[in-house]
Amino acid sequence: MKKIEIFMVIGLLLLGVHCLGQDVAGIGVILNKEKDGIVVKQVLAGAPAAISNKIKANDRIIAIGQGDKASVSIEGKNLSEIVQMIRGPKGTVVRVTILPDGKENAQPEVISLVRGEIKEIAAAPPTEENRVGATAPEIAGEDLDGKKFKLSDYRGKVVLIDFWGDW
């Protein structure tokens, strides 16, 4: 079930990329319709939603407003109608009302975002260095406590690398 859901989401994203013209922009989120409503599945790096740092995966979207016009509830609307509402000319403002983490009792938050070009980000090919079949590029950095460690420290083990945030 889950797998099908993910494929549908990616399908939607790709469709969105193809439909985007020169002047149509968005905020860079991948949405999915779930039983509780419209939920943010992913936030695309470098796009307005990610830069704002205010929209995270699992947030539920409950209303959308255009510029300084009143927000409109998205209840009963389908995913493509909602995507239409979020998209618009580059540089215009869209206000998204969310329930953080999808929690019913959470205080709704209104996030104001300036639409930006997301085409190149979404369509960018994976880098040559980290394609399937290539040797994983070294990762060297520090953990939360400042302790240094490297990916190559774990050679000999199967490694699951999880690029994550709290969502």
């Binding site: 993910i6 790096a45 960018a124 994976p126 980290n130 994983a136 969502w167």
Partner: peptide, 27 residues
């Protein structure tokens, strides 16, 4: 690594070769 969506998962084998990549959980 050119990451554009979260979560993104990579499965690396014991020789250090990338074997699978998933944008979003594959289940």
């Amino acid at each position: 690594w050119g990451i554009r969506g979260w979560p993104t998962l990579y499965v690396v084998d014991h020789k250090g070769v990338i074997r699978h990549q998933h944008v979003g959980s594959p289940g």
